[in-house]
Design a protein around this nucleic acid. Structure first.
Lengths: 205, 205
DNA sequence: GTCTATAGCTCGATAGAC
DNA sequence: GTCTATCGAGCTATAGAC
């Protein structure tokens, strides 16, 4: 999952992080011991301390990577879009790339979604910076979409951003990218988030 | 949180479950020891075994209650609605009552959302039954809404149900019912889910 | 860089007094 | 019903050989 590494230390570091991400995702933070992380990474528990100062140092890096991999993919995709892109096109691209990154790096992203609320305070605080940056990216996507026209004025951007990220991340709990097509999932979520459930003739509530 | 109990055993049981739900929510399953559950419930760890056979037996009950409390509130609210209720009214009622129950019993509901993916297999399997029942309730709400007319045919009910439950549950991670109004949150989510983000003149994607 | 060995601690669970 | 006491196991982290 982590690529582009060169020397032995970098390779071992990456193996430890990959192993930890997968185990944290499946069993939570507290249930995963350094012994099983080491075993999954192909070494003994004592050797972990050559690469990381503590269990907390490992989880900090796993959590940050879980956000940063999504951030980078969405950012790159949005930056590459034409100036003339419509609001619908921008949002569809953001949703699709968020979902693609979510499932491409699912051990890291799912570990983040699942254990963020359960790690020690200092760990959570460290990850908060990265989370805020990703939320800010979505605010800028919404601003750009608004400039291109077509957004309903009654929808609060901040609420929409939180709802969008929350609903997309929740797909990690049930969607299977092997059985089903992420592209179709993105189309389906875009359809609902942009167009809503109701026919547009009647006013809701 | 758990009320209507009578004798000493029932009271102690309820205190144990309340304590466990709050601790599981905050620290996850693996990091919470029976000793701290017992302390939070006002007893010693050995005493827990008079009420529960194991740590797993406690978490099974916490997880089930987290779904059942929401199920019951939503079911009651929907059943009480007039036959002439519109699709928008039905969905708003479902969304509002789901959110209200989510925050009224937040230790149980949040514990469920957070640790479901990390508990032992048999525990997760036990909770799956209750989850399926709640999803079925939402399918019946969507069917009833469709009969009353006004739903876009292009929206898949199954995808919408998963997205709705996922996005509502995700509010547990950021919404503060003390600082803000759950009613307003429900209005805001209903607005987006039923009407979408875009102006209805343009077609999306 | 990775190993073995282990210190010091906490865990879930049980047994038996009251 | 709740207590105390304890078993055997597993935990994070460290020390030092290789």
């Amino acid at each position: 999952m982590l690529i582009g590494k060169k020397d032995k230390a970098d390779i071992s570091r990456a193996r430890i992080l990959d192993a930890a991400a997968g185990l944290f995702r499946q069993y939570g933070y507290g249930q995963v011991s350094l012994r099983v992380i080491a075993e999954a990474a192909g070494m003994k528990s004592g050797s972990l301390y050559y690469h990381f100062a503590s269990k907390e140092a490992i989880v900090v890096e796993v959590l940050d990577l879980g956000i940063e991999m999504v951030h980078q993919k969405v950012d790159t995709a949005i930056c590459a879009m034409s100036e003339q892109a419509s609001a619908g096109e921008l949002l569809h691209a953001g949703i699709l790339n968020h979902l693609q990154a979510l499932f491409a790096f699912s051990d890291y992203t799912s570990a983040n979604v699942r254990i963020y609320g359960q790690v020690p305070d200092e760990v959570r605080k460290a990850n908060r910076r990265v989370r805020r940056r990703y939320e800010a990216l979505w605010m800028s996507i919404l601003s750009r979409a608004e400039e291109s026209g077509g957004l309903r004025a009654s929808v609060d951007h901040d609420a929409f951003k939180l709802m969008l990220i929350g609903s997309l991340n929740a797909t990690l709990e049930w969607f299977d990218p092997v059985k089903d097509d992420v592209q179709k999932l993105a189309d389906s979520y875009t359809e609902i988030l942009l167009g809503g459930l109701l026919n547009h003739v009647e006013s809701n509530v």
